[in-house]
Amino acid sequence: MRVLVTGAAGFIGAALTARLLSRGDEVHGIDNHNDYYDPALKEARLARFAMHPNYTHLRADLADAEAIGQAFAAFQPQRVVNLAAQAGVRYSLRNPQAYVQSNLVGFVNVLEACRHGKVEHLVYASSSSVYGANRKLPFSVEDAVDHPVSLYAASKKANELMAHTYSHLYGLPTTGLRFFTVYGPWGRPDMSPMLFAERIVRGEPIDVFNYGNHSRDFTYVDDIVEGVIRTLDHPAQADPAYDPMQPNPGTSNAPYRLYNIGNDQPVPLMRFIELMEQNLGRTVEKRLLPMQPGDVPDTWADVSALRRDVGYAPDTSIEQGVKRFVDWYRDYHHLA
């Protein structure tokens, strides 16, 4: 297939692009290469497949409607995976405008391009952050998500609503995937695995929020990519059992779906840190701090709908995943 991937130089986008190319798809990647974190890491990810004969790349911002429209018209993708976004809960407290431009303006540009390009299926990144103040675990796509606790979460909830509108008005099949704490090789420097690794290597204390009482549904990147591809290959369809008198937030009478994509096995944050220390061969001080604004104490994905519909089955244990991440980290940073 011809697949357009936005955020192709990002953590998940690069891993997905490599997998799509390996199975024979033609991929056009779009990324703005911004400096939210070190662009050198993005360039290193791209270098793994940039010269592949079935890959082309465009440096452009999703908020540039003309550039996005031209890219779609030239490549004529059959399917689209939108992973480009301004990420980060904490950064949204300092720079909210970045989220409006990338996650709202940018996303409507993608929706418009998909509509006019008659794209067969749009798969887009949502986030576990949409569950916000919810406390019922595990988080289910059938739960209401009307109480976001960060602008980042609100922007992802808005994406789901915008996608439904296009599915309803124009028959565009859309599937939103709520990612749960993705980690692994080539990960983002602003996320806890990379931050923990850096501090452990340097022997510096780790800041542990919520006094260490967090748990997270850590999901290995290869499992995420497998789920994205399985979803991409199953375009959303209208739910014949959808009842407008008792609406299910995860489906619709339009070709629209929402899924959680996680490991379905929450891990205490302190256990994750312990595994990092074991694999890096040293222990460090933990500074126990209060909960940060915009954060949530626990996440846990109910992935039963994704298992049922596309056969999603994450199989990387936290022990395997942390070891693979640390092995990559050592190699990338030339550590003994």
Results as ranks from 00 to 15, higher is better:
residue 265 Q to D: 11
residue 202 R to N: 13
residue 116 H to R: 14
residue 130 V to H: 01
residue 178 R to C: 12
residue 133 A to V: 02
residue 223 D to Y: 03
residue 162 M to C: 08
residue 128 S to W: 09
residue 214 H to P: 00
residue 200 I to P: 08
residue 285 E to P: 04
residue 179 F to P: 01
residue 31 D to T: 00
residue 254 A to D: 02
residue 275 L to E: 06
residue 93 L to Q: 14
residue 11 F to I: 01
residue 112 E to A: 15
residue 185 P to A: 02
residue 145 V to K: 09
residue 120 E to M: 09
residue 308 R to M: 11
residue 202 R to C: 05
residue 57 H to K: 03
residue 209 F to K: 01
residue 90 R to T: 13
residue 152 Y to F: 14
residue 184 G to A: 03
residue 1 M to R: 07
residue 279 N to L: 01
residue 105 V to K: 07
residue 214 H to W: 08
residue 26 E to V: 13
residue 174 T to D: 11
residue 71 A to R: 03
residue 124 Y to D: 05
residue 136 K to S: 10
residue 54 N to S: 09
residue 81 V to F: 07
residue 194 M to V: 15
residue 42 K to W: 00
residue 25 D to C: 13
residue 319 E to S: 01
residue 202 R to Q: 15
residue 40 A to Y: 06
residue 43 E to A: 13
residue 37 Y to P: 04
residue 148 P to E: 08
residue 167 S to M: 09
residue 71 A to T: 08
residue 336 A to P: 06
residue 171 G to C: 12
residue 305 A to S: 09
residue 10 G to K: 13
residue 330 R to K: 14
residue 62 L to Y: 03
residue 166 Y to E: 11
residue 23 R to D: 02
residue 215 S to L: 12
residue 243 D to N: 14
residue 174 T to M: 06
residue 235 P to H: 00
residue 266 P to T: 12
residue 31 D to Y: 02
residue 318 I to R: 00
residue 90 R to Y: 04
residue 298 D to K: 15
residue 204 E to N: 03
residue 272 F to I: 00
residue 284 V to F: 13
residue 106 G to Y: 07
residue 239 D to Q: 09
residue 81 V to I: 12
residue 319 E to W: 05
residue 17 T to H: 03
residue 309 D to S: 06
residue 206 I to W: 04
residue 253 N to W: 07
residue 87 A to F: 04
residue 265 Q to W: 05
residue 44 A to R: 10
residue 42 K to A: 08
residue 37 Y to S: 08
residue 280 L to S: 03
residue 211 Y to Q: 12
residue 272 F to Y: 15
residue 77 P to T: 09
residue 320 Q to S: 07
residue 151 L to P: 00
residue 159 N to V: 05
residue 306 L to V: 12
residue 232 L to V: 08
residue 162 M to G: 01
residue 300 W to I: 00
residue 299 T to D: 02
residue 33 H to I: 14
residue 147 H to V: 10
residue 174 T to C: 15
